[in-house]
Simulated scan of single mutants.
Amino acid sequence: MLALEFATTVRYGCDLLDSVDGLADWLREHDLPEVPVDEQVRESVLGLRKALRSLFADAVRPGPASKADAGRLLDPATAARQLNEAAAAVPRVPELDWPGGRMRYQPVPADPAALLLAELAKAGIEFLSGPDRERLRACPAPRCVRYFVQDHPRQAWCKPSCGNRARVSRHYHRHQ
């Protein structure tokens, strides 16, 4: 789930996209379009991530948003507009794959940075309009700022280590 991986590039105490090199590494790891990354591209990507995380925070309501987003969220209408504008910046045209008879959509050649932003925005739109949106949660563990998709009704944390950290924290506070 590219949208979820993109939104969770924010970690407790660090940001995987905190530098041009960090963004370039992340793009390579996720097989995204080759883009000459500079500070302007990085700022555009960070703006798109902020819009996506704002929509994630709205989607998990009435539960709490991620602790990393406190006080930094865009209003949902603005965030949705930014996501839609990024996706619309690169129109796609239908193309027939023959003899297979399948239709696929190909992006119209555009600026590589616009292609990247459109790909990330499209992933966010598909995630937020799909069935996984209902299972999206913000991890409540201490020092965790991730969003995750709940795989089981009793799943409370994004990963087992967060569950352990929460139990240790509760134990500590009970015995102090």
Rank of each mutant, 00 (worst) to 15 (best):
Asp69Val: 00
Ala65Glu: 15
Val41Phe: 08
Leu73Tyr: 10
Gln82Thr: 05
Arg28Val: 11
Leu55Gly: 02
Thr78Ala: 14
Ala86Tyr: 01
Phe56His: 12
Ser44Met: 10
Leu74Asn: 11
Leu48Tyr: 04
Gln82Pro: 01
Pro64Met: 08
Arg53Lys: 09
Asp38Val: 01
Asp69Leu: 12
Arg42Glu: 12
Arg81Ala: 14
Glu39Ala: 15
Ala87Asn: 13
Lys50Ala: 13
Leu73Pro: 04
Pro36Asn: 08
Asp38Phe: 00
Leu46Asn: 09
Ala70Leu: 15
Ala77Asp: 11
Asp75Pro: 08
Arg61Cys: 03
Ala65Pro: 08
Ala57Gly: 14
Arg42Gly: 05
Lys67Ile: 10
Arg42Ile: 05
Arg53Tyr: 04
Leu55Trp: 04
Asp75Asn: 09
Arg72Met: 12
Ser44Asp: 11
Val35Arg: 05
Arg28Phe: 05
Ala68Ile: 06
Pro64Trp: 01
Lys67Thr: 15
Asp58His: 15
Phe56Tyr: 13
Ala80Lys: 14
Ala87Val: 12
Leu83Val: 15
Arg28Ser: 08
Ala87Met: 15
Thr78Met: 02
Ala77Gly: 07
Ala70Glu: 15
Lys50Ser: 12
Gln82Arg: 15
Asp75Gln: 11
Lys50Pro: 00
Asn84Thr: 06
Val35Ala: 05
Leu48Trp: 01
Pro62Tyr: 02
Asp25Gly: 05
Arg61His: 11
Arg61Met: 13
Leu74Phe: 15
Glu43Arg: 15
Val45Ile: 14
Arg81Gly: 03
Ala57Gln: 02
Gln40Thr: 14
Trp26Lys: 09
Leu48Thr: 01
Arg42Ala: 05
Thr78Glu: 14
Arg49Thr: 00
Pro33Met: 00
Asp75Ala: 00
Gln82Tyr: 06
Ala88Arg: 06
Leu52Glu: 02
Ala59Asp: 02
Ala57Ile: 00
Val45Tyr: 07
Leu74Val: 04
Asn84Ile: 03
Ala59Met: 07
Pro33Glu: 05
Lys67Gln: 14
Ala51Ile: 07
Pro62Arg: 06
Leu52Trp: 03
Ala51His: 04
